[in-house]
Amino acid sequence: MADSLKVAIAAGGTAGHINPALALAEELSARGHELSFFGQPTRLESSLVPQAGFAFQPIDVTGFDRSRPWTLLSALWRMWRAEHALDRLFSRQGAPDVAVGFGAYVELPLMRWCHAHGVPFVIHEQNSVPGLANKTSAGQAACVCVSLPVAIDAFRDRVGAHTQIVVTGNPVRRSVISASRSQGRLALGIPEDADMLLVFGGSLGARHINQGVLRLKDELLSREGLYVVHSTGKGEYDSVVGELALTDEEARRWKVLPYIDNMGETLAASDLVLSRAGASSIAEIAALALPSVLVPYPFATADHQTTNARYLVDAGAAVMIADSDIDEESFSQELLSLVDDPRSREAMRAAARGLGQDRAASALADQVESAVLLGE
């Protein structure tokens, strides 16, 4: 598509919504389109979006708490005000050619405004189990894009007669996809010829995963060529450091971090990953074609992390361990067998490459451009 489009993107609340939106924005910007972001002024998007160099417009909305039915009135009032604010903004600056929503409540005013004014819009669902905002918006969307094939069924009865449902994958930012293994290893102080196990459980960490790895300290350190990079989560850091009680020599090969600043380079440096199975983690692991041992968070809504993990497991790119099995022998056997078996890891890498997750941003951008063509 040669003509430059004005694209409005609504994403917010968590990095799991914002980072795929930024990945799409990077791709669309590279194609010559003009981007503007809409999000809440007090949430993470208000800092991440400007840091990435994109225009940010604040929207004041709140979700509806089903346990407190009276919050519906205030949510609807803020929705109405936000739509009118968008109407005034677009009257001054011109309407977008197309909009994209990434599933948080903040998308609803923009999607509703677009529907009322004949502007096509696309929604993207990162998880295997769709959230309420995307389920609400699906009926008027030009295209519903999903990260995982299993999410298609959740939308079949919610889309309009002319709505397409397309599997694009979950977009990953260019800084992750283009990350260098050698630069990552240099930053971490890990030799090029060593094996590296990366352990992380999300921004808050995962206590059970941390405990399971702690019990394997002696086994892991007995592998002389193995380095462990262990991101504990901020709340777990002090206790994990205390329980590991690493000597100076052990600490050279077991690097404990409260969180990971540069996830792209850290992933790129890895030979094997042990992690939860959140949508962003799955997308980044698959995009970099990393062998992984996935331990889904057992209390996720509708057990969606298990469904997320199956996407890689069924492709042969990962193995899955139930959280309840971390204390069992099967956990240590599965993890250590992959640590010791580079041929199995290479087969998992090849399987992950076959998923094409590194092309998700491009695939989603294609659907955004197509929505404009279909609406003409």
Rank of each mutant, 00 (worst) to 15 (best):
S344E: 15
Q333D: 12
E346N: 11
D358Y: 07
F331T: 10
R353Y: 03
R349I: 00
A352L: 02
A363H: 14
S337M: 07
Q333A: 14
L336N: 09
E334R: 13
R349P: 00
E334Y: 00
V339H: 09
D341V: 04
R359H: 11
S330A: 14
Q333W: 04
S330I: 13
D366P: 06
D366M: 11
Q367T: 04
A350K: 08
A360C: 08
D341I: 03
S330C: 13
R349C: 09
R345I: 06
Q367F: 03
E334P: 00
A361K: 10
S362A: 15
R343I: 13
S337L: 08
D366Q: 12
R359Y: 02
Q367V: 05
P342H: 01
D340E: 14
S330R: 14
S332H: 11
V339D: 00
D358W: 09
G354Q: 05
G354D: 03
F331S: 08
G356V: 01
A365K: 06
L336Y: 05
E346R: 11
Q357M: 13
D358R: 07
A361N: 10
D358E: 15
R349M: 07
D341T: 08
S332M: 09
D366E: 14
S330M: 11
S332K: 15
D358G: 01
Q367D: 08
E328I: 00
A363S: 12
